[in-house]
């Protein structure tokens, strides 16, 4: 089966000569949630940003449903079917909830555009706040709007960078429940997370990244039980590898 999204041998970073990704690889199969884990500085966020076209890729390939999208301008990725929700500042705070969604919908071809009513059905909280400036939403509502904004364009894969950051445990549960619903509706998800426990409980598979390279991969339950996971987080990656 063709992976929905696949990275192979990705090298890249923000400054030339200072690589953050050193041959990173991962893949997301249709219908699954894959979580990308790793200690701080492992390159998790950089990898999804590189895939989304926000960080230069110096070597390696990114394929979306088998099509090579490496180095494509960020805005074209959306038209190709790659949705991305950044960790912070992921909604247009000066636009209303409705305008955030209308803009996202208007930017993609009609065949890709989903009805806004569908989004409001999936995220009822947003329906009640549609006229409110997005900057005035609560943290959880902002995350939901950010996800809805990405979903409006019917992505073939959705990438999220730490959607639980700054949320209370209760809200993390709500957001993750919605992500499960998104996956069940047929959109595979690549999820970067620091909240290892919650991420492994949600995901089907996990990839652990250390120093810009994948060190552990497997079914989420197996990775959760693998003693190497703790070792990788506490710096014993040579032994663990």
């Amino acid at each position: 089966m063709t992976p929905a999204l696949e990275f192979s041998g990705i090298e890249g970073g923000y400054e030339p000569g200072l690589p953050i990704l050193r041959g990173a690889g991962a893949r997301v199969m249709p219908g699954e949630i894959v979580t990308l884990l790793g200690p701080n500085g492992a390159g998790k966020s950089t990898l999804v940003k590189a895939a989304a076209g926000l960080v230069p890729v110096w070597a390696g390939r990114v394929t979306l449903g088998g099509r090579d999208i490496t180095g494509m301008p960020a805005h074209r990725m959306v038209h190709e079917g790659l949705g991305f929700v950044p960790q912070t500042e992921n909604v247009f705070a000066n636009l209303s909830v409705l305008d955030n969604l209308k803009l996202a919908a208007a930017l993609v071809a009609k065949r890709r555009r989903r009805e806004l009513a569908e989004m409001f059905a999936l995220f009822p909280d947003l329906d009640r706040q549609r006229g409110l400036a997005a900057g005035r939403l609560s943290g959880g509502q902002r995350q939901m709007l950010a996800v809805a904004r990405a979903l409006v364009a019917s992505p073939s894969v959705l990438m999220l960078d730490e959607p639980s950051a700054g949320l209370s445990p209760k809200l993390v549960g709500v957001v993750f429940d919605r992500l499960r619903a998104v996956r069940d509706a047929g959109v595979p998800i690549l999820l970067v997370e620091q909240n290892v426990k919650a991420a492994l409980a949600l995901a089907d598979r996990a990839v652990v990244l250390v120093e810009g390279r994948e060190r552990l991969e497997g079914a989420a339950r197996e990775v959760a039980a693998d003693p190497r996971l703790k070792a990788l987080y506490f710096g014993a990656h040579e032994e663990a590898a």
Binding site: A74, H75, P86, E89, N90, A93, V108
Partner: peptide, 11 residues
């Protein structure tokens, strides 16, 4: 508001 977010939103 946010040029990087605008890019990934498809602008």
């Amino acid at each position: 508001m946010n040029p990087a977010l605008a890019r990934v939103a498809g602008v």
